[in-house]
Structures are given as structure tokens and as C-alpha cells.
Amino acid sequence: MTIEFISEEQREALQEVANIGMGQAGASIAKVLGEFVELSVPQISAVGAAGIPAALAALAGDGIASAVRQAFIGELRGEAIVIFAEHSADDLAALLAYGDALDGPASRELLLDISNVLVGACLGGIAELLRTTIGFSAPSLLADQVASSQLLRADGISARCALLVEVRFGIEKRVFRCHLVMLMPDDAVAALRRALDRFVEEL
């Protein structure tokens, strides 16, 4: 997939900045869970609005998934979405020794908490590197155990196109898997481009 609205240099800078943010997020949840967290190489792509639900479904893979969304505001703004593979909440509960039978509300609460830690550390780290500050809305549940193709509906997206920054977290020998996706509408990408140019110039 080609990236039409950021340059190759900006994409490389974003990838490295996302990599560092992801590392900070990974270290944060590793501490919370007491487990070694496996990290991926961040992927960056540009997608049209109509393609966003399919892109998220592709990340989640076949089957059931849940998702939490959190808006971020400031010079950089957009939506962070954390997609959890099926049974991730139960796995988290087991790791945190909550007992094996989590009821619905407790299980949702857990996903919100973990998302909050991931998004805060990852995007906070990115913002710090880009010398800007961002604020976050409270996390809310976007989808609760739905087919991955139903995670997000195309008509719920206001942007024409979006920049998708994806990082993946997993835990060795566990089913827990999640993806963090940053969606930035095209009119917010100009600010991101400026911040990335600044970052590259200061290198």
C-alpha cells in the first residue's frame, strides 16, 4: 500500500518514533503483567475511509475480537484503537490472578485499563520525541466480542482517509494478543508532517 501523504523520510521517522513509543508501552504492560512482552516492527500505511474497517479486521484476523478506543488531542490528534484477540481478557485475568471467571463488566474494565496503559505510554512517548504534548479522552469500549469484520463501521468514520500506525503486542506462550492502531484523519496529518520534519531537522 502506498503512502500518499507523507514522504519517505517522514515515514521512516514516524516508524522509528512509533518503535520507541511501542517499546515504552511494552515495558509498561510488562511491569503490570509481570511477563515478557513480544513486540513487532511497527507498520505504517495510508488507507481511505472505506478501507479502515477492513484494515482493522485484517489486523484482528479471523474470529472474535474486542476493541477499545481513545481519542488524543493536541498538535497531534486522532484516535487510538486497541484491538484484542479473543480470550485476551481471560488471559489477562489469569495473569493478574483475578481468578478464572471474570464477569462481563470486570472483563471489559480490564481491557479499558490495559488500553489506557498502552495508549498513554506509546502515544505519550511519541509525543515526547516529537516535542509536543497530547491529551487523552477516557478509553471506551468500541466493540465487545464481535466478529473482526464488525469492529468498526465505515459510516462511523468522519475522515476521508487516515494514516494507520500499527504496533503489535503479545506474550510468550499465552493467547493474549493486541494491536494498537493510531488513526489520524487527513487534516491532522499536516501537523504530524510538521512535527516529523522538526524531528528530522533536529537529528
Binding site: 520507541i20 511501542m22 517499546g23 515504552q24 511494552g26 515495558a27 510488562a30 515478557f36 513486540l39
Partner: peptide, 9 residues
């Protein structure tokens, strides 16, 4: 030299 800064790493 890594962004994966977990103590375990």
C-alpha cells in the same frame, strides 16, 4: 541498542 526497554530484554 533497542526500543524494547523491558528489564527482561
Amino acid at each position: 541498542v533497542s526500543a524494547d526497554i523491558q528489564e527482561a530484554a
